[in-house]
């Protein structure tokens, strides 16, 4: 499930990068077009050489562009991964944010302030103890606390959605306090506004 989301995100990031690339190619082709007539006017002796040079120049530019896209894609992916890995943890049957949670959320808030195209879904989760029904309400409360914090940090409500998974999507298996504490969390899914 998470992998699918991740792949979807990466591919959407790639799409976005492609769109960006398509826009920026216009000015970059201009110098190439300029050099061709100049070469034709100045030195008719070696048009083949010029053509080869132009080709290699274009290839070089394409390579640089690909690298730039790759870097941008990697940067977005890293950001998305960072946000998606910033799980916020809660105490048993509580939805208040701990100090540690607030620190983490401040980092996520910073990222979201910089990357205006990112929208997020906040997922609230609970540990395996208790009923399915009550854990949905508890997960909803947790997701909301996170949303409220980020809203106070300056993130528009329109960029955030909250949803409760109750105890249905545990991160850690098992009936130990360690597993429980891993599962009492809110985490993020990131989408990119087109």
């Amino acid at each position: 499930m998470k992998n699918i989301v991740k792949i979807a995100l990466i591919s959407s990031a790639a799409c976005l990068a492609l769109v960006a690339c398509a826009k920026k190619q216009q000015p970059q082709t201009d110098p190439a077009a300029d050099t061709a007539p100049a070469a034709a006017a100045g030195q008719e002796a070696a048009p083949a050489m010029t053509q080869a040079q132009a080709d290699s120049l274009a290839a070089e530019q394409a390579r640089l562009e690909a690298e730039r896209l790759e870097a941008e894609r990697a940067r977005l992916e890293a950001l998305i991964n960072q946000i998606m890995s910033e799980d916020v943890y809660f105490d048993f049957d509580r939805s208040e944010l701990t100090e540690k949670a607030k620190e983490l959320l401040a980092q996520v808030g910073e990222l979201l302030l910089k990357e205006k195209r990112f929208t997020i879904t906040i997922e609230g989760h609970t540990d395996a103890r208790g009923t399915e029904d009550y854990n949905f309400t508890l997960g909803a409360k947790r997701a909301m606390k996170v949303k409220e914090f980020l809203a106070a940090y300056g993130i528009e409500n329109s960029r955030m959605e909250s949803v409760s998974y109750g105890k249905e999507a545990p991160k850690a298996q098992g009936e130990t306090e360690e597993a429980y504490s891993q599962n009492r969390r809110a985490n993020f899914r990131v989408n990119i506004k087109q």
Binding site: F136, T137, A140, M144, K145, K147, S162, S164
Partner: peptide
């Protein structure tokens, strides 16, 4: 039924 919206159920 229950419905949760913005943290309120």
């Amino acid at each position: 039924f229950s419905s949760s919206k913005d943290g309120k159920t």
